[in-house]
Design a protein around this nucleic acid. Sequence first.
DNA 1: CAGATTTTTATGTATGCACATAAAATCATT
DNA 2: AATGATTTTATGTGCATACATAAAAATCTG
Lengths: 233, 233
Amino acid sequence: MNKPAFRNWQSVQEEVLRRIHSRQWPPGELIPNEADLAAEFGCARTTVNRALRALADAGLLDRRRKAGTRVAAQPVAKATLDISVIRNEVEARGQKYGYHLIDRRETVPPVATSAAMNTPIDAPLLYLKALHLANDRPYALESRWINGAVVAGVRDESFETISGNEWLLRHAPYTHGDIAFSATNATEDEAAILDCAPGGALFVIDRLTWDGDKAVTKVRILFVPGYQIRTAL
Amino acid sequence: MNKPAFRNWQSVQEEVLRRIHSRQWPPGELIPNEADLAAEFGCARTTVNRALRALADAGLLDRRRKAGTRVAAQPVAKATLDISVIRNEVEARGQKYGYHLIDRRETVPPVATSAAMNTPIDAPLLYLKALHLANDRPYALESRWINGAVVAGVRDESFETISGNEWLLRHAPYTHGDIAFSATNATEDEAAILDCAPGGALFVIDRLTWDGDKAVTKVRILFVPGYQIRTAL
DNA sequence: CAGATTTTTATGTATGCACATAAAATCATT
DNA sequence: AATGATTTTATGTGCATACATAAAAATCTG
């Protein structure tokens, strides 16, 4: 075997990928250790490590100290979705973005909401309901609860020209959150707002955001029928 | 300022994260360069680099050569979904997994399918339709087209005891693919199979897998109403 | 032989150094 | 002032080395 000289970690990664795809290293198989690969590729172990680590991050390799590195038996496809600001999403499609505030009030939320956000059962929260538009057509309906006790200055914001989405991103720090995707049938109300048939299948994003142990905001976004969120594998 | 001694890249990352979350480094702001941070943290620049690179990968920092590193103005939340084998998904919930093959035939697909898979319009493909069960209840309905010209040995597999999902993972190499999530209303047929109301909102995963420039398989999976896919941010 | 202990080994990471590279900033030239 | 060449600078990466750490494997011990 001549030495093709793998001079950078990307080329090493490509070669490893090639071997995985070609089944030269089939799923589940133990691959040579870093030192050996480094010798074979004619580069430093650091470089091999970088390449393998990236592949492990991507879910294609399983690595364990001492046990070695093996090709993932079931490459848990990691679909990385970019959940951007809706405005950006719409504009990225080359469409005109529009925003319309439907409701804004400070009120005591349903118990399910205060429970999920871990707020006192009788504590009022700020509620926002707004419609996002693409080329003047309904695009997504956002219903949001904001914890005014955590987010400074929300009560002074009318949200008539900026969505909770964007405002919070700019003003509310957060440490972590979780997100869920699902599908639901449009209620009569929702159908009227989104200009679709009642019962239409809506794509749903539910998101709960925390700053330490305090809930910042809980939002549910309903997308019009036909909406797709896509990504490469 | 005393020196807290940041001895590893994780602790550096934590500190940087803390400064971002606390708005000490607000969104859009340029942060000190690697060398300065290394000096401040009392570690090597390499270590700072590792920490910042990881954060950039996560979408929290924007980095450009010479221009420096700044806090992402709009931290595109990257939701990383683990699309595992359905069997694993079910079993991970502690439920009993079941599988039932509904249909298997070799036939010429609809033009939309052959177009998407870039196969000759009159070329027959292998079609599979199967139901995944959790605790003996319908869980997901899989409809799949497989390119027999690309996948060796598919024609010899009955798929009566193993899903296309798992079989392909073990036997068919692939280089890339794309995936889309959406919502749809259950047809009469689908409702009957999934034991739900016709028109019920189903969560949909569409996936198209390639090996180089040849399509390997195209699959649509419909999940029963109520299905959620979730992840942390 | 079971169970505890030690050894071995592959990955994980910190460091100093060197150089590559992209892009902003500056300077030179017309 | 517009254009183009040059310098500067922050990030990107490679490498040799050293040591840390987890976990498998081997060894010891009762």
